[in-house]
């Protein structure tokens, strides 16, 4: 069952259309990825869902209108001149928490984001990764059912990124639904169950990631080395040639590989690399949207 329905949302900024009649359904308890290049409309859609933008066409339908939503903006939206604890108290109060309940939740969230030891330190003294974690923590205080994360790993070290992924896993296990926007495809592939591809304000594909990979992803064979390309390879699929290497995208990789190996045996050539590559989300994204630069 879905927790949220995005129903024919259109948002225009003067002459530019940021979102063009977008419809999506976000199922409960999943991590839903929003993928797209800069300017695709990801942040605009998230801001609409989080009620930051209220001037748009279409409808956002929440299954439970009293659902608690936590919004993690793309910017590090913290008051950096005060401590981590002060920021958590501030946002906790804005979400309606107070007294012992607030104190307890702050302790839990500090533990969750790994900042218990630095709670009394000013945010200005934090690293980028710590700020990002606190940025997420401030949206978790009221134990939201739906967590909206807009590129929460931008500009941080691999350790902090991994920590955030683990945090997201724990939130999923606790039953939260997460909408996660990113332009890093490997992140989406790693942590999301479902995804929607956005480009020029439109959804170009959406569904379970495994389904998208199966539907669009074709395995490929990468070969490098001298005289390793038999004639007639085009009959197996699409061939992309480069200097002393080629990539064969095919639906029948084993047969194609056998054909290449047989040819190499006969001709006595030795490939430097002969690899069977599984399809990646990034390749599918480029094949659906093209690879030219956006604005």
């Amino acid at each position: 069952m879905e927790v949220l329905k995005v129903d024919q949302i259109t948002k225009k900024y003067e002459k530019k259309t940021a979102l063009a009649n977008i419809s999506l359904e976000i199922p409960a308890g999943v991590c839903f990825g929003l993928v797209g290049p800069n300017g695709a409309g990801k942040s605009t859609l998230l801001k609409i869902i989080a009620s930051v933008i209220r001037n748009f066409q279409g409808k956002i339908r929440l299954t439970n209108p009293r659902m608690k939503i936590g919004y993690v903006p793309q910017e590090i939206a913290l008051e950096e001149t005060v401590t981590a604890q002060d920021n958590l108290v501030f946002f906790g109060k804005l979400y309606g928490l107070s007294g012992k309940a607030l104190t307890l939740r702050i302790e839990e969230v500090l533990e969750e984001i790994g900042l218990t030891e630095r709670a009394k330190d000013k945010v200005t003294t934090f690293s980028g990764g710590m700020k990002r974690r606190l940025n997420i923590g401030c949206a978790l205080l009221h134990q939201p059912d739906l967590i909206i994360m807009d590129e929460p790993t931008v500009g941080i070290d691999p350790q902090s990124r991994r920590y955030i992924f683990q945090m997201i896993e724990r939130l999923k296990q606790k039953g939260a639904t997460i909408i996660y926007a990113s332009h890093y495809m490997e992140e989406i592939e790693r942590i999301c169950d479902e995804a929607a591809f956005l480009d020029h304000g439109k959804v170009v594909e959406n569904g379970r990631i495994s389904m998208i990979l199966e539907k669009h992803g074709k395995p490929s064979i990468f070969v490098s080395g001298n005289d390793c390309m038999p004639s007639g390879l085009e009959s197996f699929g699409m061939l992309q040639e480069k200097a002393e290497s080629y990539l064969l995208i095919t639906r029948d990789p084993l047969q194609a590989m056998e054909y290449i190996v047989e040819y190499c045996k006969r001709s006595g050539s030795h490939p430097e690399r002969l690899e069977l590559a599984k399809p990646r989300l990034e390749d599918i994204f480029f094949s659906l949207t093209g690879s030219q630069l956006r604005e």
């Binding site: 989080a50 009620s51 919004y71 903006p73 910017e75 939206a77 950096e80 946002f91 401030c138």
Partner: peptide, 13 residues
């Protein structure tokens, strides 16, 4: 500029 106003707009305040 640092997104606090937008973030606060997402809260019940």
């Amino acid at each position: 500029n640092n997104g606090l106003v937008a973030r606060i707009a997402s809260t019940p305040l």
